[in-house]
Structures are given as C-alpha cells and as structure tokens.
Design a protein around this nucleic acid. Structure first.
Lengths: 137, 137
DNA sequence: CTCGTGATTGACGCTTACGTAAACGTAAAG
DNA sequence: CTTTACGTTTACGTAAGCGTCAATCACGAG
C-alpha cells in the first residue's frame, strides 16, 4: 500500500528502480552503478530498493552533471554540497572554496559554448551561401 | 632552417610535437592519440611529425570540445565541419543538419550550466549565512 | 502449484582516452 | 665517439561507465 494518505506526512512518495529508470531514461544497471559509487542511497525494504524524493532529485542532478561532462567523482562532490549539513567553520570554508572552483569551471564552459555557437553560426552562414549559389544556377 | 623568409608565403610557421604539447599543456601521447583517431594529420619529414597552423588550430578546437564534455568521436564530426569543402547539395544539407543538432546540444548545456550556477549561488548564500551565524556568537 | 513480472547479486566484457614503459633512430654538442 | 635531447613505434595497463548475461528470489494471478 504505497501512498498511504490518512495523514499528510507519513509515507512520502517513493519510486521503484524501474520507475526512476523509465522517468530519466537510464537503465537499471546505471542506477545501481551510481549507488555503488555512493551517489545514491535508496532505502531497502528487505532486499529491494525504494527511492525517496531525495534520491530522485539527486539522480536528476547526477544526470545534469553528466550532460555537463563532469566525471562521476566530480558530480559526487558537487551533489554532496547541496545537502551538506551546516557543520563547523572549517567545513563551511571548504565548501565555499569548492563552490568557487566549480563556478569558475562552469563559467569557462559557458565561454567555450558561446565561442562554439558563434563559430557554428559562421559555418552555417557559409553553408547557406554555398547552397544559394548552387541553387541559383 | 625554419622560417625561411625570402618570400612571404613559403614556409609557414610550423611546430614540433613537443612545442604543441607545451603550449596546450597536453602530453605527446595525447597528441599522437588524436592523430591515431584521425583528428590531426601532421606532415611527416622522414619519420618526424611537423605541425602546421591548421593542425594547431584543430588541436585548440579539440581541447575546447573536451572541456565541453564531448567525446572524441563527436569532436571529430564537429571539427571536420569547420574546414568542410563546399561540396554538393546533399553534403551541405547534411552539414546544416549537423549544425542544428550541435547547436541544440550546446544550448541545452548552457541551460544546464545556468541552472547549476543559480543553485550554487543559493548554496553559497546558505553557507555564508551559516558562517555569519557561527561567528556572531 | 505454476507462471509471469520485477526485483536482486555477482561477474565478466567492452569502449574511451589516455599512461607508461621498452626499445630504437637521429642529429647536434662536447 | 659518446652523450644528450628529442623523436619514433609497439604494446600492455588502467580507470570510468556502463552493457550483458546468469542464477536466484518474491509475489500476485490464474
């Protein structure tokens, strides 16, 4: 009995591994692999994995990280920043430093993307000009 | 005698593999690997590789592609678009299609980056708030 | 009871992108 | 002539990121 709602705070929504896999279009193997690497920590009911909203969000973050070309190790440090406990000063300073590093990387990437988009636009213009020239005869 | 200049178009600037490696901060192995994958095609003087401006530019493009998280195969198709010959109509149409695909990918990546930057900013704010709270006592 | 469905844990395989020797060639400098 | 610097090929090693069985279990329906 999933989604037991006689109280609005008991059994938060959960997902099976197959549901998550379908939603994000990845394989079961992939999800289990992420768990193996410590990126996901689903609940276990007996032997079977039960995913909570937290896991679902993390999977989304992981896949976005992948689209950005980060390695799973890098993604781990990034994702872990999101739900870091307040902690002590050293921890916070370290976290802030990490954030700075990641931001610098991302900004470099955005510059790379913008450059590439500009150049692709040029190539496209040339192509279309060539095409027009070809068709005008 | 490199850089023979009794005419301003004879021996365009060239580089050794070590020079390129130093300039772009990659290993010789990496550069040779890119050649193996068909991404670079340096001249050969005897057995030794001689790199021309074209190769140098391509290496730059390859590395930018890597920063963007593309695979070498993807990079190959992208880089090859840059110096594609005019060619026939089918070719041009195909190229335009490729450009469209790449652009869509890049724009998705930029969205991912912007999202991530926003979220990092939030985490940073929380961190700094926690830090202030910690120091205010 | 049996079948189908969906889950589990190994464990081996494969591709990508290089690292890392090993063994050799060549050419200038001491 | 030997050393040094710089280059070459061949080839095995490796880490990441899964794919792909194989064998097994649990459960609800028929």
């Amino acid at each position: 009995m999933i989604g037991d709602v006689h109280n609005d705070q008991v059994t938060l929504e959960t997902w099976s591994i197959a549901q998550l896999a379908a939603e994000y279009d990845v394989t079961l193997r992939t999800i289990r692999f992420y768990e193996d690497r410590g990126l996901l920590t689903p609940e276990r009911r007996g032997t079977v994995r039960v995913y909570h909203p937290r896991d679902r969000v993390r999977l989304g973050l992981i896949l976005r990280g992948k689209r950005l070309g980060f390695s799973l190790d890098e993604i781990a440090t990034i994702v872990d920043m999101y739900d870091a406990e307040p902690g002590e000063e050293g921890q916070l300073v370290y976290l802030l430093h990490q954030i700075g590093t990641r931001r610098a990387e991302l900004e470099q990437r955005r510059r790379d993307i913008d450059e590439t988009l500009r150049e692709l636009a040029e190539v496209e213009d040339r192509c279309q000009a060539d095409l027009r020239a070809l068709r005008a005869r």
